[in-house]
Computed example of a mutant assay.
Amino acid sequence: MTDWQAFTVETKDQVAQVTLTGPGKGNAMGPDFWRELPEIFDGLAADAEVRAIVLTGSGKHFSYGLDLPAMAGSFGPLLADKALAAPRTAFLNDIRTMQASITAVANCVKPVIAAVSGWCIGGGLDLIAAADIRYASAEAKFSLREAKVAIVADVGSLQRLPAVISEGHLRELAFTGKDIDAARAERIGLVNEVFADQAAVLDAAHALAREIAANPPLVVQGVKDVLNERLTAEVAAGLRYVSAWNAAFLPSGDLTEAIQAVFEKREPRFEGR
C-alpha cells in the first residue's frame, strides 16, 4: 500500500475505488494530485485483481479543479519574466505533464466510472472526461470554468468532450464558463444517469463496476482498446496543439488579473490585454 497525499485507493471484489482527497479545499488539484494520478492508474492497470475502477471525491464535492494558489509557481515565472523563451518552455512542459496525468486515466485498460457529487469544476471536468462512464448525484454541478480565469482549457475537456456531448453544448460551456446542474448534464449526455444523492450515485457506480467485472476481463479491456483507437490520435494532436497555444498566448494582463482576483477574493475585471 502506498501512502498517497491526494487520494485514497481501496480494492474489493475486483473493483478499485480511487477517491480524491485534496489536500486543497474541495479536493482541488495541487502538485500531489498531478504527480500521483498517473502512478495510481498505471498501477491499477497492471493489477490483475482489478477489473473496473470507480473514481469519486471525498466530502461533499468531486473537485473544485486546479488549486490556483498551490499551482501559482507554474504561472508566476511566465508572467514575471515577461514571457521569454525559458519560462514559456517550462510552462509548456508543465502543461504536458498535467495532460499526461489525465491521459493516464483515459489510457487505463480497466473501465473507469466517475461518480460525481457536488461541484465538478475545470480540471474536475477534464478528469471525468477521461473516464469511460459518468454518473452524478442530483445536486451535482458542472462548470468548464477556465475562460472565467483567462485560461484556455488545456488538459483534456476540449479534446475529449466532443465525443461525449455535442459540439454546440461544448462550445456553450467553454465560451461562457457557466455552471450547469445534473439534470442539464444528463440531457446533454455529459452524464449517463442521475441518482438521488451522494450515497446513491456511489452505490450505482459500484454496482455497474461489479457488473463489468463479472465479464471476461480481457474482452472488456479489448472493447475499451478498440473504442479508444478512433480517438487516441485526434486527442493527442489536440492536446499538443493547445499546450503550444497556451505556452505562446496564455501570458496576459487578464491572466494576472484573474490570479490577483482569486487571492484577493473579488470579481476580476478583464480588459482584453
Score class of each variant (00 low, 15 high):
T2D: 03
T2R: 02
F7H: 12
T8V: 01
V15A: 10
L20A: 12
G22R: 13
G22N: 14
W34Q: 04
R35L: 02
D42K: 15
G43W: 03
G43C: 05
L44T: 02
G59C: 12
H61D: 14
D67W: 03
A72T: 01
S74L: 10
G76F: 03
D81C: 02
A86C: 02
R88A: 11
A90S: 09
L92T: 02
I95W: 09
I95V: 14
M98R: 12
Q99W: 03
A100M: 00
S101Q: 08
S101N: 03
T103P: 02
V112C: 03
I113T: 00
A114K: 01
S117Y: 11
W119R: 14
I121Q: 14
G123T: 12
A136S: 13
S137T: 12
S143N: 10
S143Y: 08
R160G: 12
P162H: 09
V164D: 07
S166C: 11
H169Y: 14
L170V: 11
R171F: 10
K178T: 13
D179R: 13
D181E: 11
A182G: 06
E193F: 05
Q198I: 00
A199P: 00
L202H: 09
R210F: 06
I212Q: 01
V219M: 15
V219Y: 13
V226D: 10
N228G: 13
T232K: 09
E234P: 01
G238I: 02
L239I: 01
R240N: 09
A244H: 08
N246Q: 10
G253S: 01
T256M: 11
A258F: 15
I259P: 01
I259N: 00
I259L: 13
E267Q: 11
E267V: 04
E271T: 15
